[in-house]
Computed example of a mutant assay.
Amino acid sequence: MMVALGLHSNSIQVHMLDMETTSPGHTLLHSITAPSHRTDVRAVCFSGDDRAIASGSANSIKIWSRSSRNCLHTMESGHVLSLTFVPGDRHIVVGTKTGQVQLYEVGSGDLLQEAGAHSGAVWSVDVSPDRRGLVTGSADHDVKFWDFELISDPASQQRRLSLSHVRTLKMAEEVLCVCHSPNGRLLAVALLDSTVKIFFTDSLKFSLSLYGHKLPVLSMDITSDSTLLATCSSDKNIRIWGLDFGDCHKSLFAHDDSIMGVKFVPDTHLLFSCGKDRVVKFWDADSFDLIMTLEGHCGEVWCLAVSRDGNTVVTGSHDHSLRLWERTDEPLILSEEREKEGERC
């Protein structure tokens, strides 16, 4: 007799059971382990042209085709907490739980550079708007700035990309998230003390301090016009802030558990959020209305990313899966969505 098993590691095994002997046993016939993640998906991002998606877990990074949904490449890594494509989409930068900042070449899967950048977990990585470098935020209280540069590789006798540390901004608390304004003027830094500090990018002079969340801010994003900042927290609330004076436009009780990620749709004031309550929600940051609730994951949703064309959202979860949510041409009637939300409650 044969039996198929779906395992917690997100793999499938087929066993042959031997029930005719005095000591029953089994033989493993087949095992399907690729291409999915074996552990929680903790970080996701789209490539610059929206054609590829990168996802990271406790031991690997996977590159996926957006159109075919196939896994194109798998790279062994440290415990991934944050990642981003480098402009040009030929490289990817990863922040790990042990404080490493790793630079991979996407095509070959080679680890080009591994810098012991921080002494604590690298919770956030964000490419600067001028595309010349990036910034990392860590549990060691440091915000570090890195430039992209080309160096000579002695092994191949060719020039390759490298990261060069240029300056450090020291904070009084652990850094949980960093985010540039798209106009390159401001840098937002979320700290463990539940505050968000705003600095001028060029001089690193302090600009604003945003108070209001009762628990730490886990993720944040800024609109394409650099006017609004959205923050989400373990206190289950999303706050919408104005970046001109730092005033809170609205506090939304958004999820039934900690909110792990928030992202604006490019060139709009619409945003998506995800949380430990296993759902993804779609909001209007001008009217503060809940537009839609998306259900499908069977575990906490750790991360999300929105494509640059605004038509696709990808989410990563504790259930080891990624889900793609795509815009449809079907008209959306808010009154019907509110009725559905009321039925869920």
Rank of each mutant, 00 (worst) to 15 (best):
Q113Y: 02
H118Q: 08
P154S: 06
L163N: 03
G116N: 14
H30V: 09
V265P: 02
S55Q: 06
M16V: 05
R159E: 12
D193T: 06
L243A: 09
P182C: 03
G261S: 15
V44K: 06
R42A: 08
H8A: 12
S152K: 10
K276R: 14
H8L: 10
R239A: 13
T268S: 14
Y211S: 09
V86W: 07
N311H: 08
D244Q: 13
Q13Y: 00
G56C: 10
C71S: 15
D267K: 12
L252R: 05
G310H: 07
V94D: 06
D225A: 02
S36A: 07
K144V: 11
M171R: 14
R131A: 05
A43F: 03
A4K: 12
Q100S: 10
H297N: 05
F148A: 08
V41M: 04
I240C: 05
G316M: 03
G246M: 09
G107Q: 11
C232D: 05
M1N: 09
R38L: 03
C303N: 10
M292K: 13
D319Q: 09
G184R: 09
L83D: 08
E149Q: 10
S287T: 15
P35K: 03
A43Q: 08
D142F: 00
G99F: 05
G316S: 05
A121M: 09
